[in-house]
Design a protein around this nucleic acid. Structure first.
Lengths: 131, 131
DNA sequence: CTGTATCCATTTGGATACTG
DNA sequence: CAGTATCCAAATGGATACAG
């Protein structure tokens, strides 16, 4: 039995085009996605407005930030609070569920930062050995 | 200052085409990549040979598995042991560094599996509210 | 058996313009 | 301000064939 069916406890679904997919692979990928990780880490501090978050993360297009936030909102990770004023004012924050995820993501990011010296050393050795 | 410059302690580098990149974003993305997560979780159990790992993970092309393994090897996460026999026999395993990473990834995957009910409920509500 | 090389489909991502 | 829509470029991923 494959890893995706054991450790991730696959509950297979057959989609329209007959391809098998498991829903938690999706959720995990949303959380660990390129912008997902940065959004979660940012929101761990406080809530952010859309443009604010965009500046905070840096170099993310409106499109990608919108998409990331919508996906995480759909998964119940991020809470969206749109105030009915003009001009629009929308606050994004973590749900309790999201906070749990974000803390783990931050732990992984912190781990990576701490091990960066070792990782770069490994890369140099690999490249030197003409990898 | 942006998230990518705080929590991930950005140490900016300017690449050939003038784009700024930080090396740990790279490392983190290798670890949390689509196939990276599955490889790490599998290797947490025991070492695997190439084809064995491919069957274990399921539905991964040779190209992607090769690429994933090489990247993780370069980062010092995965150890590659090629025995000089014919036919070739190559074992992949986790380095001590890799084991640390893999355990965190597994924790995140386990968390996702445990919260899957809540996540799917959130998705249904979101979709029902015509998201 | 363990890869590499190539080609092609799909996906992702960004720039821009526009709406409520 | 907070998005949506569109178009296009680039990266990703898979299938296949082939090499050591």
């Amino acid at each position: 039995m494959a890893v995706s069916e054991v450790s991730l406890v696959e509950r297979a679904r057959v989609t329209a085009d007959g391809v098998t997919m498991c829903p938690q692979r999706g959720a995990l990928e949303h959380i660990t996605s390129r912008w997902g990780t940065l959004v979660l880490i940012a929101l761990l501090d406080r809530s952010y407005r859309f443009g604010e978050l965009r500046r905070e993360i840096g170099r993310v297009s409106e499109k990608m930030l919108t998409q990331t936030l919508q996906t995480l909102e759909r998964d119940g990770i991020v809470h969206r609070d749109a105030k009915p004023v003009i001009p629009p004012h929308v606050d994004y924050s973590l749900t309790p569920l999201g906070r749990e995820a974000a803390e783990q993501v931050r732990a992984l990011a912190t781990w990576t930062a701490e091990r960066m010296t070792a990782i770069e050393k490994a890369r140099e050795e690999y490249d030197a050995a003409k990898g």
